[in-house]
């Protein structure tokens, strides 16, 4: 079939090779990047996340109120009252200010939980997939055990016994959400371990750590990145969940979850108390999911060449 040869003509003595281009231009012309940029929802998600992150981390400096300032005269102001763009809460605190500083905590917890769980999952998946045999059986059974245990109960139990600081919540979420990544990595590693270049490295006498980290890992970054992106979305949701139930981030520190918790008794009289953090959670979670979808399509080896 017409299988266009990408490289130019060769001569026996020295074969000419494709002309060099700068790394930046090569990156800009990267078909995967271009494919990602063509994915509308993923790009919308990326823009949303950037805007949301900027708002959370820069917004508080631009607002006239800070998140702890109590103005009892302005209690339950609906959105767009004076300078309170999202209104105020039962204590007259500015919701926009609270939303943004809550976002700092929620996004940070989500992001750090993703980093940790991805590290745990990748390490377990790499070892299980590469060494196989009993290490695989053992590690993957542990993974299955974690998966089969309803993680929300595990989380609530842990949260009930441990002092729920943001650090602790991050750790708890990470410990209960690495399994997906571990399974993906294990399957990918097993596929790569049988390929000739891995065998060639073994034949050369390269040590195991080299083969795992230098030969195999770079080839499975795609699926790991996709899984990691989706894990952020899940971690944000989990944090909101346990904080909503009161076991997560404790007031007065705001988080999107505990803002919802505070809002539930005023759903009739002041619905914006719930709607504003609810929309923030939804936006963040769907955006990360869309980015994950876009990355999955763009990084799929079968879709590019």
């Amino acid at each position: 079939m017409s299988n266009p040869q990408t490289a130019p003509l060769s001569s026996p003595a020295t074969t000419s090779v494709p002309t060099r281009t700068s790394a930046l231009r090569r990156f800009a012309r990267n078909p995967r990047l271009r494919k990602f940029m063509r994915h509308r929802l993923a790009m919308a998600g990326l823009v949303t996340i950037i805007v949301l992150t900027l708002a959370c981390f820069i917004g508080p400096y631009l607002l006239p109120y800070d998140e702890l300032y109590i103005d009892l005269r302005a209690r339950f102001s609906p959105p767009l009252t004076g300078a309170h763009i999202f209104g105020t809460d039962p204590l007259g605190r500015d919701i926009a200010a609270r939303l943004f500083s809550a976002g700092q905590i929620s996004l940070t917890v989500g992001f750090l939980a993703m980093v940790l769980s991805t590290l745990i999952g990748t390490a377990i998946g790499l070892v299980a997939g590469y060494f196989g045999g009993w290490s695989r059986v053992g590690l993957m059974r542990v993974t299955d055990a974690f998966l089969s245990f309803p993680s929300i109960f595990l989380m609530l139990t842990l949260a009930a016994f441990l002092r729920p600081s943001p650090t602790m919540i991050t750790l708890i979420i990470a410990v209960t959400s690495w399994m997906e990544v571990a399974r993906i990595v294990e399957a990918e590693v097993r596929g790569q371990a049988g390929r000739d270049f891995t065998i060639a490295a073994r034949m050369i006498g390269a040590p195991h750590w080299w083969i795992m980290f230098r030969e195999i890992l770079p080839n499975i970054m795609g699926p790991i990145i996709v899984a990691a992106t989706l894990t952020v979305a899940r971690a944000i949701l989990l944090e909101a969940y346990i904080s909503f139930l009161g076991y997560g981030i404790q007031p007065p520190l705001p988080s999107w979850g505990n803002m919802l918790n505070n809002a539930q008794q005023y759903l009739d009289s002041a619905p914006w108390l719930a709607i504003v953090p609810g929309v923030a959670i939804t936006l963040a979670v769907t955006s990360f999911n869309f980015i994950g979808d876009g990355l999955r399509d763009a990084l799929d080896a079968r879709s590019v060449n």
Partner: peptide, 8 residues
């Protein structure tokens, strides 16, 4: 020597 050129 060389190989089949790309159709484009």
């Amino acid at each position: 020597e060389g190989f089949v050129p790309s159709p484009d």
